[in-house]
C-alpha cells in the first residue's frame, strides 16, 4: 500500500493528540510549551500534506507552514520569557499553582 494523504493526516492527528495531552495534563510549564510546539508541528505536517496532495502546483501549504514557524518562534520566545518571569516572581513553574485569575 502506497503512502497517501490519509497517512499524513492521521500522523498529524496523532502528533497533535499527543501534544494536546501533554499541554493539558503536564504541570511543568516548560513541558507544556514543548507540547504546544509538537501541536504546531503536527499542524504543519497537515498543511504540507494537503499542499502536496491536493494543490501540488500552488505551494500555499508551504507558505502557511512558514508563517506558522514564524509565529511559533515568536510564541516560544514570549512563552519562555513569561515562564522565566513567573519563575523569578513566584519561585515556581508549576502551571497548577499559577491561578491568580481564580474566582
Amino acid at each position: 500500500m502506497s503512502i497517501g494523504l490519509e497517512h499524513y493526516i492521521i500522523l498529524s492527528a496523532v502528533l497533535f493528540a499527543i501534544g494536546l495531552y501533554g499541554a493539558l495534563s503536564k504541570r511543568n510549564a516548560i513541558v507544556i510549551l514543548m507540547s504546544i510546539e509538537i501541536m504546531l508541528n503536527a499542524v504543519n505536517i497537515a498543511m504540507v500534506a494537503f499542499s502536496r496532495y491536493i494543490v501540488p502546483a500552488l505551494l500555499t501549504g508551504h507558505i502557511f507552514a512558514i508563517f506558522i514557524i514564524v509565529v511559533a518562534a515568536a510564541e516560544a520566545t514570549v512563552g519562555l520569557a513569561i515562564i522565566i518571569g513567573i519563575y523569578r516572581n513566584r519561585e515556581t513553574i508549576d502551571a497548577s499553582q499559577i491561578n491568580l485569575m481564580k474566582w
Partner: peptide
C-alpha cells in the same frame, strides 16, 4: 457557576478541546 473559574488554564484548554 464561578466555581468553574479555577484559574487553571489547562482546565480551560480541556473545555475548549
Amino acid at each position: 457557576i464561578r466555581h468553574a473559574q479555577t484559574g487553571q488554564l489547562q482546565l480551560y484548554g480541556l473545555f475548549i478541546g
